[in-house]
Design a protein around this nucleic acid. Structure first.
Lengths: 236, 236
DNA sequence: AAGTATAATTGTACCGGTACAATTATACAA
DNA sequence: TTGTATAATTGTACCGGTACAATTATACTT
């Protein structure tokens, strides 16, 4: 692991151990340099990561302060989207409905940047947090990039598998949000009524080299899903 | 304006002028250094901004490539949230329903980190994109930070006013998302039916010094609002 | 052609430095 | 006490450098 990532983790740990809360001040930059035995720019890089993650904010001339204190019951939108899990002590489980190799329809092919004759894995799941229905997911993986999947892998974290077993790393993703009404079959999976409200999110995940490898459509249970997003200026 | 921000803008402009598309390659780092006459780290900083913004991605050993090509009809979630407007050629207008100084209720006070005896501005608007109803907004501004507002300011961009006239800068924000059903009065403002689906977003905006200054509740028109979010690894 | 070693390209990690602007603390005056 | 200059603190911008890992191009085999 990179030094600045490692240090970012240690600082986050430090905040947790010392039980620092919203607005509390961290040691100054120079002290951190000495403490971790690295240069200023490495510390700065670590702090920048934590700032992006919403853990701290920095104020020039003043210091480094703890930012996060999220509302209980709200999940980070990205933690349910395959990224670094930030669910705290909540447990995420899945019912696997389908894992199969199919040909993509034109919409799926287009979103994945492939041809309709290329193979994809189709995965369908219902996901739960602490046993409560969270969402229904239908996702497609480019088989040329993810050559093998089975129900065991899919029941756990597909992203962990892809990253560790296949050695590919996920770079970035585009998410498209929309509110709508449930179809009959969706409602059945979620234990709701047809035409009930729902949040639909389509996501295209890309590798670090920019190639799409996963296109997924998620339909959220509207009373069991509340999300938090932490944004930073000046560019957002 | 800072050098690296300026250069980021110029590079974005360059992409636009050259009509570069998804996957197209930009000049290499060293060439940019010479072209803009700055050091490597400044270019790197500019590119990092653009990467966060979802405009480019960088691939070590290979080059810098154009990332963005968004779906038409989808707005950046942050562009309707007061940040750098990314609406393209769409026009954002407002009907101002209320601008008044009031005492906050306990929920508002808590979200703004103030006392119920402190004054706040209450602003209520209905917002439109290209004349179509987008959302209903109810927001509260800490009067100690924003001492004066009127209907003209509020009809335009409050954030522009706050930043330019008051010289305060917005640092970061926490957004809470939830799907629900419209109340009767909300439905009326949006031209929808009671119990229709809606996306509700509560946002707390903070200054760079960490103080909350705006708490807003927005209710979106579910068929007129589609959002895109661009996320970057490894920390999201 | 098709694979394989080798070299060139290219962005990133990390170092260490100077200058500076925003904040906060201090000293002093009214 | 209250305000006001002054100084100390502290993070950020920007410079310029070395080393390196991932990618891509090249030359060389088979």
């Amino acid at each position: 692991m990179l030094k600045y990532q490692q240090i970012a983790n240690e600082i986050e740990q430090y905040i947790h151990e010392q039980n620092l809360k919203q607005g509390d001040k961290l040691p100054v930059l120079e002290q951190m340099m000495n403490q971790y035995g690295v240069s200023k720019s490495t510390i700065t890089k670590a702090l920048e990561l934590l700032e992006r993650k919403g853990v701290i904010f920095q104020l020039r001339g003043s210091g480094i302060f703890v930012r996060r204190h999220n509302r209980p019951g709200y999940m980070s939108l990205f933690s349910t989207q395959g990224f670094k899990s930030n669910l705290g002590d909540r447990v995420l489980t899945s019912d696997v409905i389908d894992v199969s190799v199919v040909k993509p329809d034109s919409t799926v092919a287009e979103n994945l940047g492939i041809d309709v004759s290329d193979d994809v894995y189709r995965v369908e799941r219902v996901r739960y947090v602490d046993g409560e229905v969270l969402c229904h997911e239908e996702s497609y993986y480019v088989k040329a990039i993810v050559p093998y999947l089975n129900r065991e892998i899919v029941a756990d974290s597909i992203f962990d598998y892809v990253q560790s077993a296949l050695g590919v790393t996920i770079g970035f993703s585009d998410m498209y949000l929309q509110v709508g009404r449930l179809t009959e079959s969706e409602a059945e999976h979620l234990g709701l009524q047809e035409n009930d409200p729902t949040l639909r999110i389509e996501t295209i995940f890309h590798l670090t080299n920019g190639k799409p490898f996963d296109y997924s459509r998620i339909t959220y249970h509207y009373t069991h899903s509340q999300f938090v997003i932490q944004a930073n200026g000046p560019y957002m």
